[in-house]
Write a protein that binds this DNA or RNA. Structure first.
Lengths: 161, 161
DNA sequence: AGTGAAACTTCCGCCGT
DNA sequence: ACGGCGGAAGTTTCACT
C-alpha cells in the first residue's frame, strides 16, 4: 500500500479534478496511458481511491448554513453508540459525525438553509433519541472547504526519492 | 436556479457516483441521453455542480486522525481575517475552516497521521500568525462523512409536484 | 514496467419533433 | 424541452519491447 511519487501526483490531480482524461494525467506525470491507467485501477482496487463524486455548491442548493452540534452523554457503551449512529444515518443534514475525546463525546456537522430549519432538525433529532447535553455552534461563513486530503504523510515506497 | 424533481434525482446520483454514464442516469430518471446531458451541462454552467473529484480513504493515505481546532481572537477586523485565511490556505492539513458565532471565533478541521504530527502542525501554525487562545479537540473516530449535501431544501420550480 | 494501437464505450453537437 | 443519430473523444484490452 506504499505510494510512490507518481502515485501521489496522480492522486493530487484526481483530488482536484476527476474528469481529467487518463491520457492527460499520464502526460503530466510522465507516463503513457496504459501504465497510468493501471496505477489508477490498482489504487481503486486497494480502496485508496474510494469513489468519484460530484461536489455541489452548498449555497446554491440552499444549505448555506453550517451548525456544529456537540453532544455529551452518560451512555458510554458500544450498543448505544451504534443506535445513535443509526439515527444519524437517517439525517442527510448531518454530513459529518465524530466520536470525540475530551469533554464532548460526539461532534457533528449539520447543513441547513437557515436557523429555522436547524430548529426543525433539532426537534426531529431529539424526538428520535434521548440526548442529555446538546450544544450548537453556528458558522457565519465557510472560509475553506476541500475534499482533498494532504498526501505529504502517505507511506512512501522505499525505492522512491 | 430552481431545480425540478428530475434535476434533484440527477444530482443525487452524481453525488453518489460521478462516473455513472449519462445514458444510465437518463434511464434512471426517465429521460434519454441528450436532454439528461443538457441538464447536467446547465447545472455545471450555473455552478450548482462545482466539480468532480476523487475521494480518498483517509486512513490509507495516513491522515486517519481529525482534530478540531477552536480559535478565539481579539482582532475582529476584516483584514486580519484575510491574513489568517491566507495562512490557512498554505496548510493542506486544514481541510475545513469556518468563521463562527458565539464564544469561539474560528473553527477548523485538521487531518494528520497522529498526535505527534498534530503537534508539528500546531507549532508551524502559531509561528506563522499570532493566535491568543487556541484549543484542540481530538476525534477518536469518524462515524459518518459524506460529501453529499441534502437536496430536500433546494428551491423547487413551480411547475413541479 | 513501459509503449502503441485496436476495439469498445461514452460524450456531445446537429437536426428534427 | 425531449429524442435519435453520428462523428469525436476517452477508456480498456492486447500484443510486443
Amino acid at each position: 500500500m506504499a505510494l510512490d511519487k507518481i502515485d501521489r501526483k496522480i492522486l493530487t490531480l484526481l483530488q482536484r479534478d476527476a474528469t481529467m482524461p487518463v491520457a492527460e494525467i499520464g502526460r503530466k506525470v510522465g507516463l503513457s496511458t496504459t501504465p497510468c491507467w493501471r496505477r489508477i485501477q490498482k489504487m481503486e482496487e486497494d480502496g485508496i481511491i474510494q469513489r468519484r463524486v460530484a461536489v455541489l455548491d452548498p449555497v446554491k442548493v440552499n444549505v448555506g448554513v453550517t451548525v456544529f452540534v456537540s453532544v455529551k452523554t452518560n451512555e458510554h457503551n458500544d450498543s448505544w453508540m451504534r443506535k445513535f449512529s443509526g439515527v444519524i444515518d437517517e439525517f442527510p443534514e448531518v454530513v459529518e459525525f465524530y466520536r470525540m475525546s475530551g469533554d464532548v463525546d460526539y461532534l457533528m456537522r449539520v447543513v441547513v438553509p437557515d436557523i429555522g430549519a436547524y430548529d426543525t432538525f433539532y426537534k426531529r433529532l431529539i424526538s428520535k433519541i434521548n440526548l442529555t447535553d446538546v450544544s450548537s455552534a453556528f458558522a457565519m461563513g465557510q472560509i475553506k472547504y476541500t475534499t482533498a486530503l494532504p498526501l505529504d504523510f502517505a507511506i512512501i515506497s522505499d525505492d522512491d526519492k
